[in-house]
Design a protein around this nucleic acid. Structure first.
Length: 584
RNA sequence: CGGGGCGUAGCGCAGCCUGGUUAGCGCGUCGGUUUUGGGAACCGAAGGCCGGCGGUUCGAAUCCGCCCGCCCCGACCA
């Protein structure tokens, strides 16, 4: 890498002592304070030199790994004609998140939120033969999404930097190879960034198979909940997690050690007792003895979903099961219409005309409590078969703490993450819609099999900070740091200090490192604070005090550990420390 | 989209409820003196269409209406 020295006195690094009121999230606050970014409008940011340096570090790593994996970089148009999006059907499907605009001739355009259409169009024009395959193309570009609610600074913006890649293969076997290559490339990218991350299985939608993974940077502020198994390596998004309830036999069975001692169905008057908690309190029972009934609107049709009282529904699972496009909780009016009772008294007994789906866990339950579909009444002693029978038992529940891995039965771990990468096999969805075909070795026309691979570059920068900071500021991993070293002159007016510091910075540069030379005529305190805030991994402090003893101080940002060495040995020491930091 | 909050100097805020004469404070900025190893002290100075438009009033940062911008929460608990 080419070395560099930047003089702080000439650099635009407008640090802030106080946090602008607009920021909530740590990464957002610190990036503003460190002078890395400034907001232009809601969800839209300018990158100042310091922030841009970090972004470029990320891009460089991404490029190197993508190229190594055989992908080629290109740059696609950001402004897309509507016709192309109409061809794929997404002009209508994408919804208000698509930034649409018109030109002076009233032609409709959009700003690309992703580029399947554009790349597929390009490839369908240029690729004809299997001999040209496989082809793997990527770009790093600003994307536009008109988010409902931009928030969290760079984590959810309306304009953001993204690496998006698309692969074109002859068949499934071939795309699987490409997919594996990309998976490995992604692992390498995030490893090289020095990030702690987890790869989770993601929803594959209609395509099926294990062909989608999300790369999550682990951070407590993460939007996504991740469930992982420490013993077998299974990891998934909470919404997609399949897990075993540790107590999936009924409470009654556990209590009595019998399974088929069926009690009579008994209607109990429960005036104004509606929630699970209220019912339990009223009947002196546990949520595990109760089956709750949720009325869900699936594409406008009410469906009754049954879950154990202490479990939550996972709408994604239900949606998948039903094959529905749109799911939402039914309105109170609908609930009254369906159950003939106010909200709070729904149950499975004597329901007709609606689909009834019960969670697997409820299958083993006996003599449970449920709403009576009647104002102020519940049943107790409800049993499947005799009193009610769902159309099917299926996995509907949201995994919860204490659940076991369904592969190896170990206890699952719950954590939070920020999605920074997503890879998936697209199949022929876009190639068929846009007619992107090739001739195979039998002269037969076939649709290209696609994969797509994204990395949120600007978001990754924010995620790195979420994962590594302290009360003084950012702590960059060496690979992403805007500079590896800051050389700080305590007394910039002193000739000897200046000479030694400049020489130090230049020798760092000669060694291929990027150095920030703080030559500002500021008080030492300010310079130390700024140095900590912007998070440069190593600091070399040159001042008259230490020079009297013939030394300079080298301090690691992360550990706070420092040592004093002679100026002649400083370079060597810095290189050694950096090596140690990178090896972590 | 629903709910809540905010908009006053580059940044952080007070003033507004209860209208009144030069609109304040801290930080930052500029000049000066003294300082100089963890955000200095003193002296002096610059910097505001109080988000915009309209209304009420003798008089509006302050009251009312509309608009714009920004932030937060929510859109899975029967």
């Amino acid at each position: 890498m080419a070395g560099e020295v930047i003089y702080y006195s000439k650099a635009l690094i407008p640090t802030l002592r106080e946090t602008p009121a607009e920021a909530e999230l740590i990464s957002h606050k610190l990036m503003l304070r460190a002078g890395m970014i400034r907001k232009l409008a809601a969800g839209i940011y300018n990158y100042l030199p310091l922030g841009y340096r970090v972004l470029n570090k990320l891009c460089r790593i991404i490029r190197e790994e993508m190229n190594r994996a055989g992908a080629q970089e290109l740059l696609l148009a950001a402004l897309n004609p509507a016709e192309l999006w109409r061809e794929s059907g997404r002009w209508e499907l994408y919804g208000p998140e698509l930034m649409r605009l018109e030109d002076r001739h009233n032609r409709q355009l959009c700003l690309g939120p992703t580029h399947e259409e554009v790349i597929t169009d390009l490839v369908r024009r240029e690729v004809r033969s299997y001999r040209q395959l496989p082809l793997n193309l990527y770009q790093i570009q600003t994307k536009f999404r008109d988010e409902i609610r931009p928030r969290f600074g760079l984590i959810r913006g309306r304009e953001f930097l993204m690496k998006d890649g698309y692969s074109f293969d002859r068949d499934d076997a071939s795309v699987e190879e490409t997919y594996k290559l990309m998976y490995q490339a992604y692992r390498r990218i995030f490893e090289r960034c020095g990030l702690r991350f987890s790869v989770v299985e993601a929803d594959t939608g209609a395509i099926g198979g294990s062909f989608s993974h999300e790369f999550m940077v682990l951070a407590n502020s993460g939007e996504e909940q991740i469930v992982s198994c420490p013993s077998c390596g299974y990891a998934a998004n909470l919404e997609r997690t399949e897990s075993l309830s540790p107590d999936s036999i009924s409470y009654q069975q556990v209590e009595e050690g019998v399974s088929d001692n069926l009690l009579n169905l008994e209607k109990v008057s429960t005036p104004n007792v509606k929630t699970v908690e209220e019912v339990c309190g009223f009947m002196d029972s546990q949520p595990q003895e109760l089956v709750k009934t949720l009325i869900i609107m699936a594409d406008g049709e009410p469906v009754l979903a049954l879950l154990r009282g202490d479990h939550e529904i996972n709408l994604n699972k239900l949606q998948k099961l039903l094959g529905a496009k749109d799911l939402e909780l039914a309105s109170p009016e609908t609930i009254e219409r369906v159950t003939q009772a106010p909200v709070g008294f729904a149950g499975p007994v004597s329901v007709t005309g609606y689909r009834l789906i019960a969670d697997l866990v409820t299958k083993g339950m006996r003599n449970f409590i449920a709403g009576a579909n009647e104002n102020d009444a519940h049943y107790r002693g409800v049993n499947w078969g005799r009193d009610a029978e769902p159309e099917q038992f299926a996995d509907l529940r949201l995994s919860k703490t204490g659940d076991l891995c369904c592969r190896c039965r170990s206890a699952l771990t719950f954590s939070r993450g920020i999605e920074v990468g997503h890879i998936f096999k697209l199949g022929t969805k876009y190639s068929e819609a846009l007619g992107a075909t090739y001739l195979d070795d039998q002269s037969k026309k076939r649709a290209l099999v696609m994969g797509c691979y994204g990395i949120g570059v600007s978001r990754t920068m924010a995620a790195a900070i979420e994962q590594s900071y302290d009360r003084y500021g950012i702590i960059w991993p060496v690979a992403l740091a805007p500079f590896q070293v800051i050389v700080l002159m305590v007394d910039p007016l002193d000739e000897q200090v200046r000479d030694i510091a400049v020489h130090m910075a230049n020798s760092l540069k000669a060694a291929g490192l990027e150095a920030l030379l703080d030559d500002r005529d500021e008080r030492p305190g300010i310079k130390f604070k700024d140095s900590d805030l912007i998070g440069v991994p190593l600091r070399v402090t040159v001042g008259v005090r230490d020079l009297k003893s013939g030394v300079v101080e080298i301090k690691a940002r992360k550990t706070g550990q420092s040592c004093k060495v002679s100026p002649e040995h400083a370079l060597e020491k810095v290189l050694e420390l950096l090596k140690g930091l990178q090896a972590e």
